[in-house]
Amino acid sequence: MRAVSRFVVLGDSFSEGVGDRVAARWRGWGALLAEGLRNGGEAVGFTNLAVSGAQSHDVAETQLAAALALRPELASVVVGVNDTLRRTFDIGLLARRLDRVCAELAGAGAVLLTACLPDPGRMLGLPPPLARPLARRQRAVNAVVHALSERYDAVHLHLDAPVWTEDRALWSADRLHPGERGHRAVAGAFHRLLRDRGLAHGAPPSPEPEQPPPTRTDAVLWLATAGTAWVVRRCGDLLPQLLALAAAELRHSAAGTGAVLDARAEKDLGRALRAMTRP
């Protein structure tokens, strides 16, 4: 069976490990998975290039080169939520960037790990006029990821499925990142898929967390400190456009023409999928 000696993680805070803090540092699902890739007693070389706040252009323009230099046999590419939270969101650009990232990693011999993610509006419980535009964007990102996963034969997780999104025990106080239990669940799910391909030779990570789960007080504290800072950072960039999108939602809803917005998003997605380079 093929053994993995080098595993590289690309992406944003989801892959950086936010929500799974150990010894004052983020650990995350990637590090947990790396432990289960051991071939005998030999540890897998693991590098986490993911950075909180990263968008598709950060992965394509910065993280990709660093990953290729490491010549990994296994590379994860999970990114896109931060793109949906920007006024500059462009599904065509995102598709072309991720296509190039996947093509170059796969061309260098790496098996790819990918995942579709839940939309942040739903996870945060935003009101429908605010949540629906974000949901459209995340559905488009997930559709691109699905297409690329098939093209490059990636190991893919459907993390937008109800089994993931409806289990609050998997998520941290911020509702956007997995907690330790969630990171362990992601690592375990990837481990099972990799084992089926003969790429995971070690024991799967334990599903049981080592740290106590976040309390209600933790959630309140996050909202009062880091959560407030997160909102402030996003307001200057996203909020004006999101309010405009919400106003459009309300206008179309009142006129009974909400399907127009869905059709427009589908048209943009179709154009993006058709424009992706062919292998």
Results as ranks from 00 to 15, higher is better:
L126V: 02
P127D: 09
P127S: 11
L130P: 01
A131E: 15
P133Q: 05
R136C: 05
V141G: 09
V141T: 05
V141Y: 05
N142Y: 11
N142V: 10
N142F: 11
A143E: 09
H146E: 13
H146V: 12
H146D: 15
L148K: 07
S149H: 02
R151V: 12
Y152G: 07
L157T: 02
L159P: 08
L159Q: 10
L159M: 15
L159E: 03
V163D: 06
D167L: 13
D167W: 12
R168I: 14
R168K: 15
A169E: 12
A169P: 03
L170N: 01
L170Y: 03
W171D: 01
W171I: 11
A173N: 13
D174G: 10
D174I: 11
R175E: 12
L176A: 03
L176S: 00
G179M: 09
R181H: 03
G182E: 03
H183D: 03
R184D: 02
R184I: 04
R184N: 08
R184A: 06
A185F: 06
V186L: 11
A187R: 05
F190T: 05
F190P: 07
L194M: 09
L194F: 08
L194K: 06
D196M: 12
G198K: 10
L199A: 02
H201E: 01
G202V: 06
A203C: 07
A203K: 09
P204I: 01
P205D: 00
S206W: 10
S206R: 06
E208I: 14
E208P: 05
P209Y: 13
E210F: 14
R216M: 12
T217M: 13
D218S: 08
A219E: 15
V220I: 13
W222G: 03
W222C: 04
A224G: 11
A226C: 09
A226K: 15
A226G: 15
G227A: 10
G227W: 08
T228D: 04
T228I: 08
A229P: 01
W230G: 14
V231F: 14
V232T: 06
R233W: 09
C235R: 14
L238K: 06
P240K: 04
L243S: 07
L243A: 13
A244M: 03
A244Y: 00
L245N: 09
A246P: 11
A247R: 10
E249I: 05
R251W: 06
H252C: 06
H252I: 00
S253T: 09
A254S: 01
G258E: 01
A259E: 09
L261K: 06
L261T: 01
D262R: 13
D262M: 05
